[in-house]
């Protein structure tokens, strides 16, 4: 088996994936500086690990165009990697935070009025809680919309608004790979953004309801490896978002689950399919 791993930088995750992949076949580490398409790469599968969403997205499609299967596939990257498109996939299968969307500032203001304060304005792309804005009143809303306008990125003109969910000082991150529930953690933080990349602390989460909900969220996409963010709302669990380019070092550390191995085993299944 010839396994490619694309990357931007070698974090602990990429090193673990490389090591596990080495147990199953020949590994080709593909730095983004060294790949030009059309390529002459003879590979059975590629695991995409670039840090930037758009690089990962386009690499997925480039490899697929050469008949090389990838983890994650382009369509999963595209829809799971966009907060709004992911919600459209999820909303009929799992409970999600109340949301509105619009493509103009005026529509965004109307969306916020419908939901009522406080709300969270979420960029449709990006992660680690960057540029998430909790908006408590009209003044703050006007300021955030003004700032977004000056960021000069057309994607900030797509307005995705979520009703703010009061959380018990933590949220849940679960991992589903190829339809198999792998593990879950609680992420604790005093800040309303609980991402461990922003300093949140992690603990294992063993909860049957989380397992079941995570699998249903994964089924909304039907393939791939997804990290799923879940809120404990006052009326039950809510799927906040999904991540198609998962980081997992904290989850692997506190749960003892070898997530890198699960990812590689799934890539091998994809290669054989």
């Amino acid at each position: 088996m010839r396994i490619g791993i694309t990357y931007t930088i070698l974090r602990r995750e990429e090193l673990e994936i490389k090591e596990r992949a080495g147990d199953f076949g020949e590994v080709f580490m593909l730095h983004e500086d060294d790949m030009v398409f059309p390529s002459n790469l003879d590979l059975d599968v590629v695991i995409i690990r670039n840090v930037g969403h758009f690089k990962a997205l386009y690499l997925a499609r480039l490899f697929e165009s050469e008949g090389i299967p990838v983890v994650n596939p382009f369509t999963v990257m595209l829809e799971a990697g966009d907060k709004l498109l992911a919600t459209l996939r999820l909303k009929d299968r799992v409970p999600v935070p109340d949301w509105r969307a619009g493509v103009s500032e005026k529509a965004s203001e109307k969306a916020v009025e419908e939901l009522g304060y406080p709300v969270v304005l979420k960029p449709v792309f990006g992660s680690w809680g960057r540029l998430l804005a909790k908006v408590n009143d009209r003044d703050a809303l006007e300021a955030v919309l003004e700032h977004r306008k000056w960021l000069r990125n057309p994607l900030y003109g797509i307005h995705y608004v979520q009703k703010f969910v009061e959380k018990p000082g933590r949220d849940i991150r679960s991992y589903v790979i190829g339809g198999e529930f792998v593990t879950a953690i609680y992420r604790y933080s005093e800040h309303w953004i609980t991402n461990t990349a922003r300093g949140g602390k992690a603990e294992p989460c063993y909860d049957e309801e989380v397992r079941e909900l995570s699998l249903r969220a994964w089924e909304a996409f039907g393939e791939g490896a997804l990290a799923i963010d879940i809120f404990e709302g006052s009326e039950g669990l809510l799927v906040n978002e999904v991540n198609p380019n998962m980081e997992f070092k904290n989850a692997a550390r506190v749960t003892g689950v070898d997530i890198a191995k699960k990812l590689v085993e799934y890539a091998l299944e994809v290669a054989k399919a």
Partner: peptide
């Protein structure tokens, strides 16, 4: 830090986070 050269070993501070970085 990122290892940007091996022979000799040269380290650079990780690049600034870009807009679409993350999971």
């Amino acid at each position: 830090l990122e290892v940007v050269s091996l022979n000799p070993i040269v380290l650079e501070e990780l690049p600034e986070v870009e807009e679409d970085w993350g999971e």
